[in-house]
């Protein structure tokens, strides 16, 4: 496991690179994390997922978006567009480190939205969405409700200690999926909870993408611990599903 910094001087990102246990095989995965308390809640899940994939011969890069986790920047500077750019930076870093020509993007929760947007990069051939948040406007309304504020406002919020700037809220509310120039050849959507899949997702990936959907109704949400410390349990079944699908 190699903790590292990458990106630019102005936008330094922190990540953890797990090389394949079997040496260089030219297969690499980038994991886009959730946001806020869910980031902490699912951190262990990302770690265990990376370990399992590394054993199966995949190099894996996990990273923190700008303004989150170990990366540079303040919570007041977070931006959805910036995070999509960060995911592409992480993708380049992972390809560079691994020597691979193609990559898999995995997105957990809000990371699913980020990964979907970033997946139009030509090097991405597989996309995995784990309990993705794809209705960004509903998500923003949920954050506002959690903070006891009305949705649709521009004011800055703090949700469970996490800054949610008004500009970021507007980005979420106004989010419309970009028309992709290219889509990954393979898509897996896996979820432990009821997942109202938006129409735009299937429209976006219709045609050339081979899409698989897996539901794990008996599994627990792994992005929340329910208590004040909020660390979730690792979803063994979900991780097994992802590892098996990737092969």
């Amino acid at each position: 496991m190699i903790p590292l910094l990458f990106g630019t001087r102005e936008r330094t990102l922190a990540g953890v690179y797990s090389p394949s246990a079997e040496g260089l095989r030219g297969r690499v995965v980038v994991i886009c994390p959730p946001f806020g308390g869910e980031h902490i809640g699912a951190y262990r899940t990302g770690r265990v997922l990376a370990d399992r994939l590394a054993v199966q011969g995949w190099d894996v890069l996990r990273f923190d978006y700008y303004g989150t986790g170990e990366s540079a920047g303040e919570g007041s500077e977070v931006s959805l567009a910036g995070w999509v750019s960060d995911a592409r930076t992480a993708l380049e870093e992972a390809l560079d480190l691994s020597g691979a020509r193609r990559a898999t993007l995995i997105g957990l929760r809000l990371g699913g939205l980020v990964a979907t947007e970033a997946s139009s990069a030509r090097q991405v051939d597989r996309l995995i969405l784990c309990d993705p948040i794809l209705d960004a406007a509903a998500y923003e309304a949920g954050l506002a409700a959690e903070a006891g504020e009305p949705a649709g406002e521009e004011v800055d919020l703090h949700v469970g200690g996490v800054p949610v700037p008004g500009r970021f809220r507007r980005e979420l509310r106004d989010h419309t999926p970009a028309s992709p120039t290219k889509t990954p050849r393979h898509l897996l959507v896996v979820h432990v909870q009821t997942f109202p899949e938006p129409r735009w997702l299937s429209e976006r990936f219709e045609g050339g993408t081979d899409a698989t959907r897996r539901s794990l109704p008996d599994a627990e949400p792994y992005w929340t611990g329910g208590g004040e410390m909020g660390v979730g349990t690792v979803p063994v079944e979900l991780i097994g599903t992802v590892v098996e699908w990737l092969g």
């Binding site: 806020g36 308390g37 989150t68 986790g69 919570g75 469970g160 410390m229 909020g230 660390v231």
Partner: peptide, 10 residues
Amino acid sequence: GIIHRTGPNR
């Protein structure tokens, strides 16, 4: 607790 090294919400 078991929160990683960023600490609770950084």
